[in-house]
Amino acid sequence: MIDLTINTQLAEKILTGFIRTAITRSGFTKTLMGLSGGLDSAVSLYLSAKALGPENVLAVRMPYKTSPPETLEDAQRMIDELGVQSMTIEITDMVDPLINHYEKMSPLRAGNIMARMRMIVLYDQSAAFNGLVMGTSNKSELLLGYSTIFGDSAAAIQPIGDLYKTQVRQLACALGIPEKVIQKAPSADLWQDQTDEGELGFTYAEVDKLLHLLVDQRYRPEDCIAEGFAKPFVDRVLQLMQQNHFKRVMPPIAKLSQRTIGYDFLYLRDWGT
C-alpha cells in the first residue's frame, strides 16, 4: 500500500524553522507572496505567518478580470484570519496590452504572460516591502513541470516543494486553513474554469502515488505498471517529468574556462550568510 500520510506537526516544525532561517540569515525579516485563494499559497502563507509573525508577511492578491470573485474573497478571509499585511493589484491593465497586441493568443501564452506579470509585481513589491519572495510550488507540480518558468516558479525559497499535493492538503488541515480552500479543485487560475486535474488529465491523488514510487522509492517504470498503474499513465508522467526538467535547473553555461559556474564553482546559496 502506498501511504503518503505525513506527520503534519513535524512538517510544520521543520518548514517554519526553514522559513525563519532562510529569510533572516540573508538579513531580511519579511516575506511576501501571491495569494491566489488556492491551497498552496494558503499553506505557504500560514507557515510564513507562524515562522515570522503576521506583521512580517505580505499577501498580494493579483486578480485578472476573469478571476472568480470568490477566490478573492477566500484570500481575504485568510488575510483577516491571520492578520497579515495585504494588497490587491489587478494585473488586467498590465497584461491585456500585450495579449491584445496579437490577433491570436492561445490560452497557454496568455496564461504564461499572467504568471510572469505576477512575478514582476511580486519582485517589485519585494524591493518596496524589503522582503523575500516566497515560492508556493509543491512537489507534484515541480516534478510534472506544471508551472510557468520565470513566472510562478520564480522565488527566493520553496518551503513546500518537497510535499506532494495530497500532503500539502494534510498540512493545510492541520494549519486550520478554511475548509472551502482545502476542498477547492486545484487551479492555476489562468483562464476561466481551468483546473489542474482537468488540464493534466489525471488527479493528484493518482499521480502523487505514482510519483512517490518513481521518484522516492526508485521503482522502475515496469515495476509501477506491475503495481497496477496503467502503462499510458506511467508513460505520460515520465514524459512530463523529462520534458519539463529544464524548469527545475539553472540554464546550462557553456564551459570554456578552468572554472565555470555550475560545474566546478560550487557554493551553497547560503554562502556567506
Partner: peptide, 11 residues
C-alpha cells in the same frame, strides 16, 4: 541532514 517524513513523530 534530516530526511524521511512519514506519519511518525520523528524523521
Amino acid at each position: 541532514p534530516g530526511r524521511g517524513l512519514s506519519e511518525d513523530p520523528r524523521l
